[in-house]
């Protein structure tokens, strides 16, 4: 028997319509580690895209001469600017490491073999390899942030 939610989605015959949209994306009630990783991959991706656009715009001050470049540096080479850069280092490291895990997953590596569903019905695809991949991405991000902080705050 179909749930009321399925009825709501499919009753108009338009099976391509995802009515939950952003609400489903942000719903914390269905979070496991893989869900948090899915969420972080998207959040870090959007954050890094915004940073990248900003970085292209800020470096364009180079073409307006030395004074414009130094004025831009005065804005960005501050304690808050450095903290923001450390966040960029952490998010880019997590996004890269988790992205490599996803690449392996998409090609079927580390997913486990399908088997008979036995109690307690733990899905073989969400195994220790996947979970440790997420942890490795988080640990690498933290390490990169510490290293970045040591470089950026070395002169202060």
């Amino acid at each position: 028997m179909k749930s009321s939610n399925e009825d709501r989605i499919y009753s108009d015959g338009n099976k391509r319509e995802n009515r939950e949209g952003l609400r489903a994306w942000l719903n914390p009630s269905r979070y496991g580690w893989e869900r948090i990783s899915y969420w972080l991959q998207r959040l870090t991706g959007v954050f890094l895209l915004i940073y990248f656009v900003g970085h292209v715009i800020e470096t364009s001050s180079l073409v307006d001469g030395k004074d414009a470049w130094n004025a831009m540096l005065e804005l960005t080479q501050t304690t808050w600017g450095h903290l923001f850069l450390i966040l960029v280092i952490g998010t880019s490291t997590f996004h890269s490491a988790n992205g490599i895990r996803l690449l392996f997953t998409e090609t079927g590596r580390g997913l486990g073999k399908p088997g008979r569903p036995d109690y307690p019905y733990s899905p073989v695809s969400l195994n220790y390899r996947q979970k440790s991949g997420i942890w490795i991405a988080l640990i690498l991000a933290a390490t990169a942030m510490l290293y970045g902080a040591s470089i950026l705050f070395a002169g202060e």
Binding site: E17, R42, L49, F52
Partner: peptide, 23 residues
């Protein structure tokens, strides 16, 4: 760097936006 990240980043954004709604 500019070309690779622009393609990767904006395609990523496209994927996220298409996950929100499909028509």
């Amino acid at each position: 760097i500019l070309v690779l990240i622009a393609i990767h980043g904006f395609n990523g954004l496209r994927i996220i936006l298409i996950e929100f709604r499909q028509n």
